[in-house]
Amino acid sequence: MSGLSRRHLIAGGVVGLTGALVGRATRAAPPPLVVTTYGGSWETFWRDDLMPRFIARTGADVKLDVGFGRTFSATLRASGPGHSDYSILMMNDVFVEPLLRAGHFEKLDFSRLPHARQLYPTALIENGWAVIGMISPIGIGYRTDLVKNPPTCWRDLWTNPEFRGRIGLYNVQNSVGKAMLCLAGQMFGSGPTDMDAAFAALGRLGPVLQTDFNMSTMMGTGEIVVSPFDFGEIARLRRQGLPVACIMPREGMLMWDQTFTICVNAGARDMAYRYLDFILEPETQLMLAQKFFVSPVNSTVVIPPDLADAVPVTGDRMKEILPMDWHWINQNAVELDKRWSRTFG
C-alpha cells in the first residue's frame, strides 16, 4: 500500500463524492420538457411570451432548443429512435416524414389533445402521427410599384412578359422549391410527380433568382418583382413600408407547415401532450397569428378585423392549400436535386 498516499485518498474521495452527488441529482430530477423553436423573433417570442404562459399554467420545467429541421434531424438520427433529448419537435413535414418512418415519433394519443377536435382537416397529417400547429400559406407575392399587371395565378409566372428575368424562386433545398416542382408537374404535365414536365416548365421561366430561405431582401431591393411568398412575410414587409401584395392563385396555394411530433420515449411525455394541446388551443393560436401572421389551424379562431389583411387564409380558404406527397418527394430528393442543378446550371 506504499503507493497510496493521503493525497490519493483525498482525491479519490472528492471524485467519488462528486460522482455520487451527480448521480443522485440525475436520478432525483425528473426530465425537463424539451421543446424546439426557430431562431430570431421566434425564439424571443417563445422565451418571453409563450413559455412563461405555459409554465404559469402547468409549472413545467421547460428547456427550449433553437434550430431547424436539418439540425433536429441530424441529432435525432445520431441519438437513434427512443433515445432523443427532445420531448416534442416543431419542424416542417418534409423533415418529419422520413424520421417518422425511421421510428423516432410515437403515434399521437388524440384523447390527450382535446383541441385537436377543432383542427382544420389540413392540419391532421401523417395518419395521426403528427399535427400541424401553424400554417404559413404561400401565394404569389409581387411589388405593387414595379408590376403593372398583377398576377392572378401561377401560370402568369410563365405568361406575363414583365416578370421575365425578375422572378424569384425558392431553390430545391427549401420545401417550397420542391412543392413548386410538384405544382409545375400538376399544371404542365400528368400530375405532381411528372418531373419531366415540371423541369421543362421551370426551364421555360428563363433566368430566375434563387434563394434557400430569404426572399425578402431580393424583393426589398427590387432584384425580383414576383415570387412565391408567404402572406405573413408580405404583411411584415408591407408594415415596414415596402409596396408589396400577395394573391391567392387560382390553382391553389403552397404552405410552410409547422408540424408537431412527440418523440418515442419522450422525457416529460405527459407534459409534451399538454404543451401540444396548449399550442392548438384558440388563445395560443391567436397569439401566434398576431405575432407571426400565420394562419391558425384551430377552426374556432376568429381573426380580428385589424389582422384580416395580414392573415387572409382562414376558414374555407384553408381548403385551397395543396397537399404534398412528402414521402414521394423525399424518396426522389437526390434525383430532384440533380435535375434542378442541371436545369438552372
Partner: peptide, 11 residues
C-alpha cells in the same frame, strides 16, 4: 449558430 438561426427568418 445564433446568427445563422436569426438570419434564416429575420433580415
Amino acid at each position: 449558430i445564433q446568427l445563422f438561426d436569426y438570419l434564416r427568418l429575420n433580415f
